[in-house]
């Protein structure tokens, strides 16, 4: 394909999930054949709350982080073996919350259908929105290696946007963290060091209680900070930026709920982001308050 058009970038298939038996070996084998011609390797991951295990579900971003780091390690192992300075980046071209195990009966059990049937039209909760926000934190934290991200999918099928045929289109809960982050995250991702306690989870072991990512636009100084509080308590976080002038002007939060999936348009539209809790500006520090089980996007500015 590159002989036809050398300007294109190619994505090789990585594993369909980290749970595949061939995970790791697949990446290394495929890249051993294709390292010189491909630019990216794909990753796909879906998360869901299973058996009421809320803590593990809220820790999904950590599972995604480990997945990214393992794929990077696998790709870099082949790069090392080939003594190559080229770095393969990641196309995370399917990610989302999807109740694949608990709600979807599997494609092999679908009847033959026509005329745009309703398949996998998951409805989402406030809790799902927080997890989507936290998955975005993971992606931004790894923006040095994750070149492409695709929320799967766009409309109706595990999607932030729903429609009725001949009727309305509306936003699901998961629309809000994505739209907020897409609007605020500009320029470059910063390396944010987070000191936090951990939460014990059944599926992922100990996971950080607080996660954070930040971006700054080098041209305008616009600063965005995305922080997840996975704990069920309000938390105070101190942002230290010694030697750099920075301020936070405000923020928007999405909050988890206990209502389950919002099945109807009306119920979904009743969900909206809220104003972030007030911040306290200090000398070289900013104190942030985070609602329980929340994802907050702060916006401000930084002098570079």
């Amino acid at each position: 394909m590159k002989a036809t058009d050398p300007s294109i970038e190619l994505v090789a298939c990585g594993s369909s999930s980290m749970q595949m038996d061939t995970f790791g070996l697949w990446e290394r084998t495929v890249l051993s054949y294709t390292y010189d011609i491909v630019d990216h390797i794909s990753m796909h991951a879906y998360y869901e709350e299973l058996d009421g295990d809320r803590a593990s579900f809220l820790g999904s971003g950590t599972a995604m982080e480990r997945f990214v780091e393992r794929v990077v390690a696998s790709a870099d192992a082949i790069g090392a073996q080939k003594r190559s300075d080229k770095r393969i980046t990641i196309s995370f071209d399917e990610w989302n919350v999807w109740y694949q195990q608990s709600r979807f009966g599997g494609e092999q059990n679908l009847p033959i259908q026509r005329d745009a049937p309703r398949i996998i039209e998951d409805r989402y909760s406030g809790l799902d929105a927080v997890v989507v926000g936290d998955l975005i934190v993971t992606l931004l934290r790894h923006a040095d290696r994750v070149a492409i991200g695709c929320l799967a999918q766009l409309v109706n099928v595990i999607a932030p946007i729903m429609t009725d045929p001949e009727g309305a289109a509306w936003r699901q809960t998961t629309f809000h963290p994505f739209a907020t982050a897409a609007r605020l995250a500009t320029g470059e991702a910063l390396q944010v060091k987070v000191d936090t306690d951990t939460i014990a989870t059944a599926k992922h072991g100990d996971v950080p209680a607080i996660t954070a990512a930040a971006t700054v636009d080098p041209d305008t100084g616009a600063l965005a900070l995305f922080v997840t509080n996975r704990s069920d308590q309000e938390r105070t976080v101190t942002l230290r930026h010694p030697g750099v002038t920075a301020r936070i002007d405000g923020g928007t939060a999405v909050l988890a709920d206990h209502e389950g999936a919002r099945e109807t348009q009306e119920h979904a539209e009743a969900y909206a982001p809220v104003d972030a809790l007030p911040v306290e500006q200090g000398e070289g520090t900013i104190t942030l308050r985070l609602a329980p089980e929340s994802w907050t996007a702060f916006h401000g500015a930084m002098e570079l």
């Binding site: 745009a116 049937p117 398949i119 996998i120 039209e121 695709c150 766009l154 429609t163």
Partner: peptide, 13 residues
């Protein structure tokens, strides 16, 4: 980073 996905699946298209 802020991409999405349209598949010929169900009612996406």
């Amino acid at each position: 980073m802020f991409g999405s996905f349209v598949e010929h699946l169900g009612r996406c298209v």
